[in-house]
Design a binder for these strands. Structure first.
Length: 713
RNA sequence: GGGCGAUUAGCUCAGUUGGUAGAGCAACUCAUUUACACUGAGAAGGUCGGGGGUUCAAGUCCCUCAUCGCCCACCA
């Protein structure tokens, strides 16, 4: 009998342990690959998707942190030179909307503030919130290198993101465009396509008598911006009108419209005749390009009709629609009104219906960049887990449209450009001084717009490694990008594109996408439903280890999981089991050592060791194939139902017997199995395993489990 | 309109190359004989959505149908 380490006499207390252990790890320096022992040579790198610095972590972040920490800890034990770069995201539009809500509560508005004043306030708010976010990351046990942490508004990041824009401009891949963009009338900014979400809506479909035609439209209030009527060139009903001008009746006057033929018009829908309003519809805009049609704006940035709408000027869209319809009805021009269910794009933050609006903006020419990215994936340079995301990625890449990167918000990286408000020309700010005259007679002014957040985030794998500084580029390309499956369009493609564009290499060889974390009934968590589970509350209650293993077991890549508090509680019991089994073994194994053979093993002992080898082999294979849920489950099952239930119980008579050799062998076997499983469980439950490891008797010198070697089978 | 995923125990979900169905919770029974009352142990519970096919063997592969969910999309 050895002596039981004092601390094992008390039950495991995560609260008293986790902070202390984390501090021990941080002080050891092993989160930083530069400090790892010499056996760690080949780099293994993960760039942490930088959590938004505008609040606490949610449970989706907890899953990200857990999965990445599992990969990092496993590979660190495997002898890789592991680097996990943490970050904090200023999250442009996201944070600005959070801050606007705060302002609203205080009875203030960003539209009444100076730009700099607003920027400074959001910066102060973000830097304050960032600390809480970082504390949460630590609480989950993330073994990331804090000495390399980066914030997406660090001066060096801002500088390099702007430099990338200049490079794109000079390569003719960034240009000043003037076309319809997605406009949010509430937030007063344009949005890219991935920042809108399609929402089901039932509107009225109005059939309006329009000269010799009847046109079907859901937007009668835009008739003042109509410049043509379009029909399908194959439509036999309308052949005689194609190329002609027809006179149509508006409430206050009659106007003449050209009739054009375009393939895009669906013969079957409505009447097959379509009114064309290029300034307020993406399709119509495209037709205005092919048919050289004028563009008449009738709705302003606040969603109100302008002077072009005559007596309706100043009315909001909905009011104008009602009145225009009433007036048309009075004139006998409404043939019929039908209910019409369709999907319309809405602002993904406030659900306000997107207003297509013509604006001068900076665009990225996507086709050549996307092709290169798609080719890299087709050549197998990036593996998706699960692999069906490859198809989704390629579909998006093959169908991408030019990317609007201008945002009319202050919270972001300024676009380093000058623009002429008269002719909408744009130039780089280092090619010309503000105030220079434009050939058109206007003046070049500083562009007050900021970049779409994903413009800088897309460069993150490089920027997080200090690009273009070469020091850490040995860690590029990184190994795995692990993030939520909702970022398959928003983020992953941009990173592949910029990685190839700036460095000529894909930024990672593997993309691992996890599903969404839903509540225990499988419903999406949302504040309004009140079913949001806080990871930090769960950590406080059950310990970070229980949360971590509960998030991973039963969770397959790409599929959503349902998280219930009861499940986490169940895995706390597992931690309890580990604690007590270790206490029992260490009580009996005293001052033994492992890693050497023992002379008195029975054939049953040999069998146990062989079985353990199989477990090592299975678990290792699962790890290598990103099957963390199976690795965790196998370990859980083996530890509880083989080691604790069978092996320990079998050894009890030998341990209390009088045959000293058999007793020694039994204790040795138990210690051997325990040490091995403790190592393998470490990536999943790092706190309790590190704490237990400290109580093992064979430490010749102080040695942390975090850098122990992964068991060989 | 396209694409993808799911359907397995009462609930939420696992089941890696085809080879005797698993976990957590809930419900049931027992236990405080020195690892575990911050519980532990045990037993119970499933014709794996329907139908067809391949195979010695199918939850797993193929076809088909049904239901649910998600994503994408310029039919106004």
């Amino acid at each position: 009998m050895g002596t039981i380490p004092e601390k094992l006499n008390k039950p495991y207390d995560p609260k008293a342990t986790e902070g202390r252990i984390y501090k021990l790890w941080e002080e050891s320096g092993f989160f930083n690959p530069d400090n790892l022992p010499s056996r760690h040579t080949e780099p293994y790198t993960i760039i942490m998707p930088p959590p938004n610095a505008n609040g606490r972590l949610h449970v989706g972040h907890a899953l990200t942190i857990t999965l990445e920490d599992i990969m990092i800890r496993y590979h660190r034990m495997q002898g890789r030179k592991t680097l996990w770069v943490p970050g904090a995201d200023h999250a442009g539009f996201e944070t600005q909307t959070v801050y606007e809500k705060k302002l609203e509560k205080e009875g203030r508005s960003r539209f009444k503030m100076e730009r700099q004043e607003l920027y400074d306030e959001i910066m102060a708010f973000t830097l304050e919130s960032k600390k809480f976010m970082e504390d949460d990351v630590r609480a989950l046990g993330a073994s990331c290198d804090w000495s390399r942490e980066r914030f997406t508004l660090d001066p060096v990041v801002v500088r390099e993101a702007q430099e990338t824009f200049r490079k794109l401009y000079r390569d003719n891949l960034a240009y000043r465009g003037y076309r319809t963009v997605n406009w949010c009338t509430k937030h007063q900014t344009s949005l890219s396509d991935v920042e809108t979400e399609n929402t089901e809506k039932t509107d009225k479909l109005y059939f309006i008598k329009y000269g010799p035609f009847t046109v079907a439209t859901v937007r009668p209030e835009t008739i003042f911006g109509d410049v043509a009527i379009a029909v399908n060139p194959e439509d036999s009903r309308y052949q005689q009108y194609i190329g002609q001008e027809v006179t149509v009746q508006h409430p206050e006057k009659t106007i003449n419209l050209k009739v054009i033929a375009d393939e895009a018009v669906d013969i079957e829908f409505g009447t097959g005749a379509l009114k064309i309003t290029p300034a307020h519809d993406h399709n119509d805009f495209r037709m205005s390009e092919t048919h050289q049609l004028p563009r008449i704006e009738v709705i302003d940035q606040f969603g109100k009709l302008n002077e072009k709408a005559g007596k309706y000027a100043g009315l909001k869209i909905a009011e104008a629609r009602t009145q225009v319809v009433a007036d048309l009805q009075a004139l006998g021009l409404i043939e019929k009104i039908e209910d019409y269910a369709h999907t319309v794009p809405a602002c993904y933050k406030c659900s306000t219906t997107i207003e297509p609006r013509i604006m001068p903006q900076w665009f990225i020419k996507m086709a050549p960049l996307a092709k290169r990215a798609a080719d890299a994936v087709r050549e197998g340079k990036i593996r998706f887990i699960p692999d069906n995301f490859e198809k989704i990625f390629l579909y998006w890449m093959d169908n991408t449209i030019d990317w609007n990167i201008s945002r009319q918000i202050v919270w972001g990286i300024p676009i380093p450009a000058l623009v002429c408000k008269k002719c909408n020309k744009g130039v780089l700010d280092d090619d010309m001084k503000a105030g220079t005259s434009c050939p058109c007679g206007g003046v070049f002014e500083i562009d007050t717009d900021t970049f779409d957040t994903w413009f800088s985030s897309g460069q993150w794998p490089l920027l997080a490694l200090g690009y273009p500084d070469k020091k850490d580029l040995a860690y590029y390309p990184t190994d795995v990008m692990e993030t939520g499956r909702d970022l398959i369009f928003k983020w992953i493609p941009r990173m592949v594109i910029f990685g190839l564009y700036l460095e000529g290499k894909v930024p990672f060889h593997t993309v691992y996408l996890h599903g969404m974390v839903n509540d225990k009934q499988g419903k999406k968590m949302s504040k309004s439903k009140g079913n949001v589970v806080s990871p930090i509350e769960l950590t406080d209650k059950y310990g970070a280890d229980a949360l971590r293993i509960g998030l991973v077991i039963g969770n397959t890549p790409g599929n959503d999981i349902s998280l219930s508090e009861d499940k986490i509680k169940g895995y706390k019991h597992f931690c309890n089991k580990m604690w007590n089994a270790t206490r029992f073994v260490l009580t009996n194994a005293g001052d033994m050592t492992v890693d050497t053979s023992h002379p008195d093993l029975t054939s049953r002992d040999q069998e146990i060791l062989a079985e353990l080898d199989t477990v090592i082999k299975n678990v290792t294979t699962h790890f290598e194939n990103y099957r963390f849920h199976l690795a965790g489950e196998e370990l859980y099952h083996y530890f509880w139902h083989t080691f604790a239930d069978i092996i320990i119980e079998e050894m009890k008579p030998r341990l209390s017997g009088t045959d000293e050799a058999s007793k020694q062998a039994a204790a040795w076997i138990l210690l051997q199995v325990l040490a091995t499983t403790t190592k393998m469980l470490h990536p999943f439950v790092p706190f309790i395993t590190e704490e237990l490891w400290d109580a093992f008797p064979f430490h010749k010198e102080e040695r942390l489990l975090i850098i122990e070697a992964w068991p060989n089978s």
